[in-house]
């Protein structure tokens, strides 16, 4: 019983941590219809920034903010490459992602960086008010919900309306006397800021940075968003952001199940990829989706 409980808690932790990234992917994939692969680089970028700052004794919340800023900057790069230099969306992301691999190594100075003795958001400050057994899961859920609420608010502002309009109908954005290229850039900034935040939270939870931790991040993000949209497709009153978070938990649940059934943890990326393929196939069978 206790083993099952610990697996469930583990799934919730991972689900809500990756859920923050899924919220970012929701912006690019679902709202902007932009397959943004930069996430594979910005997720570990957030982790690298956090790891580097924490080993220098920085406040762990400040480290999260720094990660957000770094992710935003990377998103800006992808946006400029795509909008100003007119490089295709997929390629723009790949360029940023590849460049970030080196940048992440430069930030941390090596491919692994552990910090088992430093303060993190999970073992200092308000974390101490929460019973130790459920600290991580409570903080992960709280953070994900705060991000979701901020995003819900943003999507109802004028700027958020314009973002939604940009994914829906670029012509209308032009008709509103706005440059849709700039709107796309804003979307990419937000999405990559969230991906970096997600990487930073994961890094603080596992207390180490590892250069390959971003590989397949976009797959997890896309899989989460698509699963979420499918679960709630007949419940239009459920917000897309909620769906993305729930999708992330389900996605992580599936991978955890595969591990629990006996697959070695080193198979994680393969499981992630196969699961994503399964999601895409099921998704396109169900509705003949042109995007799948």
């Amino acid at each position: 019983m206790e083993a099952v409980l610990s697996i469930i808690i583990g799934i919730l932790e991972q689900g809500f941590i990756y859920g923050v990234m899924a919220l970012g992917v929701y912006i690019t994939y679902r709202i902007l219809d932009f397959p943004d692969l930069s996430v594979d680089g910005t997720f570990p970028l957030g982790a690298a920034v956090t790891a580097m700052l924490l080993t220098k004794g920085t406040n762990p919340y400040l480290a999260l903010l720094a990660a957000i800023a770094a992710g935003a900057l990377a998103g800006l790069c992808t946006g400029i490459i795509h909008v100003k230099f007119k490089v295709k969306d997929l390629l723009s992301g790949i360029i940023t992602m590849t460049a970030l691999y080196t940048i992440n190594l430069r930030i941390t100075g090596r491919s692994n960086l552990a910090f088992f003795n430093e303060n993190t958001i999970f073992n200092s400050g308000i974390a101490l008010w929460i019973p130790q057994s459920c600290r991580i899961v409570v903080i992960a859920i709280l953070l994900a919900i705060v991000v979701k609420l901020v995003m819900d608010w943003y999507l109802h502002t004028k700027s958020g309306f314009l973002l939604s309009a940009c994914g829906d109908n670029k012509t209308l954005v032009t008709s509103l006397a706005k440059d849709f290229g700039k709107v796309k850039i804003v979307g990419l900034i937000l999405a990559n800021a969230l991906a970096a935040l997600s990487g930073a939270i994961l890094c603080q939870q596992q207390r180490f940075f590892e250069i390959s931790m971003g590989t397949g991040a976009i797959i997890t993000g896309l899989g989460s968003v698509i699963i979420g949209m499918n679960i709630f497709k007949h419940m239009t009153f459920i917000q897309g952001t909620t769906a993305a978070l729930v999708g992330a938990v389900v996605y992580k649940g599936c991978t955890a199940l595969a591990i629990a059934l006996g697959l070695p943890t080193t198979d994680m990326k393969l499981i992630t990829a196969v699961l994503f393929l399964a999601v895409l196939v099921i998704n396109s069978r169900e509705k003949g989706d042109k995007r799948a």
Partner: peptide
């Protein structure tokens, strides 16, 4: 249209 699309309610 023609105004700022900022962070006020849509």
């Amino acid at each position: 249209k023609g105004k700022l699309f900022g962070l006020t309610m849509g």
